[in-house]
């Protein structure tokens, strides 16, 4: 069990709050976590991950969620989302969610419970509802994706009309997402 929060400070980060990391979370030592980041029980933070609440803050990462290799979580100084606890956050990530390798979650951003965000996808200034499966190389920006939607690989979802027309998640998509999540549970 390695918990490290001594990331190199940015010049404007001297007065930042310390991260609050649940004792049961696993945070790989090759990751940067700075500022007011609240990490729940059994969360996994993989190597090469950068979670920096040095501009927008706070961040919430719910229990049993895993954040895989090379993920970046950051937030604009302006702009907040409302978390499930009715408080405001720069980035809210729910519970039992998986953020796959190299994804970028840039606040203001909300990702619900039991979501899958695929390799190298970007979520910025958007809400992704519970149970969504976002595949690879996707851009989701300036929209509210309703719960239970599938976002196909390579899609660019930047208008609410596109978001509303997305198909619902099918069993096969969940199977794939579960397989990818499994990669990091080894």
């Amino acid at each position: 069990m390695v918990v490290r929060n001594a990331a190199p400070p940015t010049p404007w980060s001297r007065s930042l709050a310390e991260p609050k990391i649940d004792a049961t979370a696993y945070v790989h030592s090759f990751s940067n976590i700075i500022g007011d980041v609240r990490i729940g029980a059994n969360v996994l933070i993989a190597p090469g991950t950068s979670i920096r609440a040095d501009e927008g803050h706070p961040f919430h990462i719910g229990q049993n969620t895993n954040v895989q290799d090379g993920v970046v979580i950051h937030g604009l100084e302006q702009g907040r989302v409302i978390g499930d606890d009715a408080h405001s956050y720069s980035v809210w990530v729910g519970r039992d969610t998986s953020i796959a390798h190299m994804a970028l979650i840039h606040g203001p951003a909300y990702v619900g419970n039991q979501c899958f965000i695929g390799f190298r996808s970007t979520i910025f200034n958007a809400r992704v509802g519970d149970g969504c499966v976002v595949m690879m190389h996707v851009l989701i920006q300036n929209v509210n994706v309703p719960a239970g939607k599938l976002v196909p690989s390579g899609a660019i979802i930047t208008t609410q009309e596109q978001a509303d027309r997305l198909p619902s998640v099918a069993a096969l998509d969940l199977e794939f997402a579960t397989h990818v999540i499994g990669i990091n549970q080894a």
């Binding site: 069990m1 390695v2 696993y26 030592s29 090759f30 996994l44």
Partner: peptide, 8 residues
């Protein structure tokens, strides 16, 4: 608890 692989 999660296995922590050796690091270099």
């Amino acid at each position: 608890m999660m296995h922590s692989p050796p690091l270099q």
